[in-house]
């Protein structure tokens, strides 16, 4: 029997939407029993949110002051201890899951399957490699525990309406003290979250300065959209690192993606290939972004953006 343990991601008492995507992924495995584990200092609110996801059987709360911050070295032995009775252990393919899950796998003496984008059976999945330039079908041996991360952009969130039981198992694991949380700086923008927004406006190197990048914010605000950026724009300091979209940034799947002054490098495109509609604005008609754009407009962004904002 397939039993999947999903490690919940959360912050500030809120379950991260990527967790509901992991549940949706696991639910595609036939007859899978799905449990969600919440590690926190105080897991109450998050456990309730996880219990409300359809398809979840049990929510396991593991409360410990040491779990106040998501440190992989501290969480991994606890996940490994819980994993005993499961055939599969899933986490989201976010920086949280990417940091934690391989450490869990190694503690369990098994490998990991990264970035599941489609489920074919309990041990057969599809995932992207080479920045999404190839999709591989991978089969895992059934006699080993399968640890995996789930590419959130490939799945619709599991719906609300579940009613899982909430339990507090005791977890016997020795927790290391060699890794300590110091601080986190997150820009509170008041804008929609890039990873879950249905509309995203992204700017590239062409913006030329942090000052000019305000044009992107302004259009985004008009559309109620989240803001993204290319690596070049982040490297140049026009936008913060958490806005980077692409192979090494965020993989997103909005309904509408507007790429402004972005050339469309492979590494950028891999982050947006699941976007429903891609709009490209670029002054170079030969830019590769136009090969993937649903709607393309050749021209100077500095004249187009103000016009567009006015026309909307």
């Amino acid at each position: 029997m397939v039993k999947v343990l999903i490690v919940a991601e959360h912050s500030g008492g809120q379950l991260n939407p990527a967790t509901a995507k992991c549940v949706a992924c696991a639910a595609q495995i036939q007859d899978a029993q799905i449990d969600v584990a919440v590690f926190a200092a105080d897991a109450g609110a998050v456990a309730q949110q996880a219990a409300a996801l359809q398809g979840v059987k049990r929510v396991l709360k593991v409360e410990n002051p040491a779990n106040a911050e998501p440190l992989a070295a501290v969480l991994a032995p606890q996940v490994a201890a819980l994993a005993n009775e499961y055939t599969h252990v899933f986490g989201p393919s976010t920086t949280f899951g990417k940091d934690l899950m391989p450490r869990v796998a190694a503690l369990l003496g098994v490998g990991q399957l990264s970035d599941i984008m489609a489920v074919e059976s309990a041990y057969k999945f599809r995932r992207p490699v080479y920045a999404g330039n190839a999709i591989i079908t991978v089969e895992a041996v059934p006699d080993k525990k399968l640890v995996a991360t789930v590419r959130a952009a490939s799945f619709q969130a599991a719906p609300q309406g579940g009613n899982a039981s909430i339990e507090s198992p005791s977890v016997a694991a020795e927790l290391p003290t060699h890794t300590r949380f110091v601080s986190r700086s997150a820009a509170a923008t008041g804008r929609p979250d890039l990873q879950t927004a249905s509309r995203v406006v992204s700017g590239g190197r062409a913006l030329g300065s942090a000052e000019n990048f305000k044009l992107i914010y302004s259009l985004a605000d008009k559309l109620g959209a989240a803001v993204g950026a290319s690596r070049a724009a982040v490297d140049a300091g026009y936008a913060p690192n958490d806005l980077q979209v692409g192979q090494t940034g965020k993989i997103i799947a909005p309904e509408l993606y507007i790429a402004v002054g972005i050339s469309g490098a492979i590494q950028h495109l891999t982050g947006i290939k699941d976007a429903r509609t891609i709009v490209a604005i670029n002054k170079d008609a030969e830019a590769p972004i136009f090969e993937v754009a649903d709607i393309g407009l050749v021209g100077d962004l500095f004249t187009i953006l103000p016009e567009l904002e006015k026309a909307l």
């Binding site: 079908t137 991978v138 089969e139 041996v141």
Partner: peptide, 22 residues
């Protein structure tokens, strides 16, 4: 633990349209 059964190119996107102005 893992065997790659096959490699496939990603699904191509539908050809888009070019517009001439805002």
């Amino acid at each position: 633990q893992f065997k790659t059964l096959k490699y496939e190119p990603p699904a191509p996107r539908q050809k888009g349209v070019m517009v001439k102005d805002v």
